[in-house]
Every structure is written in C-alpha cells, then in structure tokens.
C-alpha cells in the first residue's frame, strides 16, 4: 500500500442544495484567535446572494406546502445527521471555545436546540393561531403562515449555536432562508451545509453564504424579493441602522441586533397571521 495523502476539503458555499465556489472566485483565510491558519473559505459576493435568493424563492411554496409533520421529520433528520458529525463540529468550533469541554457543550446544545425547534413544526399553529369570538354568524380563525424568504446574518460567535438559533426558527414554519455565516469561524457552517445536503431538506430552503456580511448584507437588505431580515449578527450599530433603512423599502420584517428572544418568539418573528371569516350558515 502506498502512503495515504490527505485529501483536503474545499470550503464552499451552499446554494440551492449545491456546493458552488463563489462566482467571484474569491476566498479568504480563516484563522484561529491565535492567528493560526485553519482553512480557506469562499468569500461570497452579491451575485452569490442574488442566486441564493432565487433558489430560496423558488422552493418556498413547496417547503411551506409540505405538511408540518413532514417538515418536522426532516428537521429531526438534520439533527440525526448533526449527531453523526459531532466530532467534526467540536473540532471546528474548538479554536474559538475557551476549553474542549465548552466546545463539546456548544455542539451538544446546538443539536438539542435543533431538536427543540423541530418539535414546534406541528405545534406552532395551535399556540399562535386562534379561533376568535366575533359578533356575527361567522367562524373566525387566525392561522399563522410563513413570511416567505428571510435573509439572516448569523452571530459571529458562538458560530454553530448562533447559526442554529438563527435558521432553525426561520425554516421550521415554512420560510426559506439565505444566511451569512460567522465571518471569523465559518467552518462549522460549511459542515452544516453538508449535513443539510444529506437530510432530505429540499435544495434552497437553507442557503449558507460565507464571507463578509458588510459586503453582502446590503444587497439582501435592499432586495425586493426578500420578505424579512434578521440582523442578529450585525455587530456594528451604524451598519445595522443602514441595513434597517434599506430593508424598509419593501417593508421587510426586520429583527434588530441585540434583541433578547426566547425560542418561541424566534419562531413567531417570521410568521404572519391570516384571519379568515367563514359564514356559519343556518
């Protein structure tokens, strides 16, 4: 047997269920906090963001149209695949974790939360929806519906847990998303893309871009075919204000950075309530 030569992974974007390099051809160096080289990651461009929105829009009706049960099963499946890659995830978040124990804890927490959000897929309508008393011969219902395509900037740290907290509540109700992963620590997000690709999740429901949100986010904020934007990961007040302003053009739902949210509210952020008046007859 000849000596095995290590086959290195090329860190790519995850768009429409495929793993393209950035159309710009650019990459950037990912380094540990101590300055040690870790990998070259794809540096996403505005055109990658554009393609990602197109993919997210194309699949959104199908994803929202799947039964809540089916969406839940797929989300559970994602957690199963994450569990299988547990060691890899720990390895990838550890340069930024204070200790090996903390890295392990972050990954376990990320998987647990994914499971927690998965459980909500067929329960959210019961909690958020209602049948309303009205002064007339009508059945009156309010039912939650997904907002549509949600752009998101995931927090820089914790890179995996922050990403899970951002995207799981978006997609569980039938939204699709384009997310910009942690710029400093994108490797766990790249691996999560590989997990998603093997989890029966339709291509385009989650699109993961790596690179600089400062460069890409303005294109998502001003994009007329994006319905909502999560600015949780924006760590610069001035940029956050600009993004919020740009997102107002088509009245995007906008989540400001620094908003403390419980899990259920995270899901409710990306829902619209539709109220139906149904004649009761005789």
């Amino acid at each position: 047997m000849s000596e095995h030569i290590e086959v290195r992974r090329t860190a790519k974007l995850f768009i429409g269920g495929a793993f393209p390099r950035s159309e710009s051809g650019r990459t950037y160096e990912v380094k540990s906090p101590e300055g040690k080289f870790i990998a070259n990651a794809a540096q996403g461009s505005r055109k990658d963001a554009r393609d990602a929105v197109t993919a997210a829009r194309a699949i959104q009706p199908k994803w929202a149209g799947a039964t809540a049960y089916n969406r839940g099963q797929i989300l559970y499946r994602i957690a199963e695949m994450m569990e299988g890659r547990r060691a890899q995830f720990i390895d990838e978040v550890s340069p930024w974790a204070k200790s090996a124990k903390k890295a392990e804890a972050e990954v376990d927490e990320a998987i647990d939360r994914w499971i927690w959000f998965a459980g909500w897929s067929d329960k959210i309508a019961m909690v958020v929806g209602s049948s309303n008393p009205v002064a007339g011969p009508f059945f009156n219902f309010s039912v939650p519906e997904p907002t549509g395509v949600v752009a998101a900037i995931a927090p820089n740290r914790p890179s995996l847990l922050g990403l899970v907290d951002t995207i799981a509540p978006i997609i569980v109700s039938g939204n699709t998303t384009v997310v910009i992963a942690s710029q400093d620590a994108p490797m766990a997000a790249v691996t999560l893309g590989e997990v998603l690709a093997t989890s029966d999740l339709p291509g385009g429901v989650i699109n993961i871009l790596t690179g600089s949100y400062v460069e890409v986010a303005p294109w998502l904020a001003s994009h007329m075919d994006v319905n909502a934007i999560d600015l949780s990961g924006v760590d610069d007040e001035k940029i956050a204000a600009e993004l919020e302003k740009a997102s107002a053009e088509n009245l995007k739902r906008c989540l400001r950075p620094g908003t403390e949210l419980d899990g259920l509210t995270r899901i409710k952020n990306w829902l619209e309530l539709k109220t139906v008046w149904h004649p009761r007859g005789f």
């Binding site: 929105v53 829009r57 294109w219 001003s222 994009h223 007329m224 075919d225 994006v226 740009a246 053009e249």
Partner: peptide
Amino acid sequence: RKRLQTGAYSGPDY
C-alpha cells in the same frame, strides 16, 4: 431594468 435603475434587486412581485 429595475435593478439597473434603483441599484436594488427586484422580484417577481413587481
């Protein structure tokens, strides 16, 4: 055409 005029990506809603 809209994209070139406004600088923002447009969508099928318009």
